[in-house]
Amino acid sequence: MREIHTDEIISTIERLFIDANINLSDEMLERLNKAVEEEKSPVGKEVIRELISNAQIAKNEQIPICQDTGLAVTFLEIGQDVHIVGLNLEDAIAEGVRRGYKNGYLRKSCCDPFTRKNTGDNTPPTIHTKIVPGEHIRIVVLPKGGGSENYGEVRMLVPSDGKEGVKSFVLEMVKKGGPNPCPPIIVGVGIGGNFEMSAILSKEALMMPMGERNKDPEMAKLELELLEEINRTGIGPQGYGGTVTALDVHIKSMPCHIASLPVAVNIQCHAHRKKEAIL
């Protein structure tokens, strides 16, 4: 049994949200650099060059990559031999978010669904926890903007829809989003589980390393086929036309009910902000 104090969780969450919003990861920068070469349209190339210099300016000036610094999505993998002491865990995460968005001059984008009154400190965060073996806590933050999140959907396909059904659903969502989710995008697809599980899988899919393929060869093949078809739509960077509409497609899947085929699509923009720490 190892004790972890919530003070440490609070300061880590604060630091990760600021870091994620200001410093684009090397992984993303490398992918964008490659995308400039891949893109055929001159306007598209120019847009990607803007995104690369945007990332450099954000780092140098220590300001956010994008003004929509997102809802505070937080994933925790908690080792079952960890004892958390101090505050209630959810309160601690919220406090970390509160401090990060205030001290990092990040935009607070969380509001009441109907009155639209801003909660003022970007809380409550969206928290996903998993209990895993061991005595550590892994924290991953994924501040998620509204423009890209708006083009996500869960759909209960019928089993006979099969792979083709999944493909046409994904393509439908990408086309529906067009320029709005700020392409080049990353597409997360959750297949199987049940209604809510497919959605969580699709978000977890977004957190897979760029270029990494699903372990199941069939799923890996489907990822590549989807990527190719998405890049044939012509949407391109910012929707101005081009051959790089998506930077990658990731699938996460699990078994589902004999009567169902749940599928979720979650779209991420080029401002793919993900940072993690292990306590």
Partner: peptide
């Protein structure tokens, strides 16, 4: 350019 908030701020 959407998401180029830092570049535009310059």
């Amino acid at each position: 350019t959407g998401g180029a908030g830092a570049l535009l701020s310059k």
